[in-house]
Amino acid sequence: MGMKTSKRESNIARFEENERQGRIRAGTDRIANIFDGNFNDAFFKGRRDAYTAYATPQLEDQYADAQKELTYSLDRSGLLDSSTRAEKVGELQKLYDTNKQNIADQGLNHENESRAAVEGARSDLVQTLNVTGDAQGAANSAINRATALSAPQTFNPLSQLFAAFTTGLGQQAAQERAESMSGVNASGEPNYKARYNTGLFGTPSSSVQVK
């Protein structure tokens, strides 16, 4: 009697486990169908493109403003037709190129982060399914997670990418202009000394003649 009961219970347990494994396989397939139907290479590339489309116009606007500020600064110093203009334009272009590459890199980061988030969600769902054996619950959870992961991203506005360049132009121009107008002392040194002197924005103080 005891052996028959034990065998029957073993058969029931084996049957139930086979049923559970079948539900797990079915749930895994449903998770895969939901995720594969929503997330592919085009989706992840779209995440990258969304960021670059958001950030690039801001970069272009800030670059245009920096170009205007540079032109204004050079014009005030009478250097629009000098070699200084080419030098400063080159510096600004290099800064623009660096920021443009940074935007491309950040766009790629958003793509990779999205891929990681999707695969992490898929893994979590399968792990939960293996514990519960609830195929329908796994499918419902997969739909909810896929919906959340598909929602449009929000991005932070770009900082002032050229602020240091334009601020430096104004500060250096002011300092060198003040030095050029300060006159010299008995030792031939300028009465006012800029922190550093590029010679780009003013006449060197040593050329000021004492009358």
Rank of each mutant, 00 (worst) to 15 (best):
Q136G: 08
D134W: 01
S73Q: 13
Y72D: 09
D124C: 01
D61C: 04
D124H: 11
L70N: 08
D124F: 08
A121P: 03
A117W: 07
D41E: 14
G46L: 03
E91H: 11
D105C: 05
L125C: 00
Q62E: 15
Y51C: 05
R76A: 11
G107Q: 05
D97K: 09
A104M: 07
K100H: 12
E91R: 11
L79Y: 00
D124I: 01
N112Q: 12
D124P: 00
T52E: 09
I34H: 07
N38D: 12
L70C: 10
F35R: 04
A138Q: 06
E91Q: 15
N33Q: 13
N38P: 00
D81A: 07
R76E: 15
A135M: 08
F39A: 01
R30A: 15
A50L: 07
L80R: 15
L79W: 00
N109S: 14
A117Y: 08
K88V: 01
L80D: 05
S82L: 02
S83W: 00
G137N: 10
N38R: 15
D36M: 05
E91T: 05
S73M: 02
S114E: 03
A53R: 14
E111K: 14
E60N: 13
L129V: 03
S77A: 15
Q136D: 15
K45E: 15
L92Q: 04
A55Y: 02
T128K: 15
S83R: 12
Q136K: 10
R30G: 06
K88H: 11
A121I: 04
V126Q: 05
E60P: 03
T98P: 03
N33W: 05
R30W: 12
N99G: 04
F44R: 10
Q58L: 05
P57Y: 03
A53P: 08
H110F: 15
R76F: 01
S83T: 14
Q67E: 14
Q127D: 10
L70I: 14
I103F: 09
N38T: 08
Q106P: 01
A55W: 05
G90Y: 06
Q106R: 15
T52S: 08
L108N: 10
L70P: 04
V131G: 00
D36T: 09
N130A: 06
D124R: 10
D81C: 06
D36Q: 12
G107C: 11
Q93S: 12
A66H: 04
A138V: 02
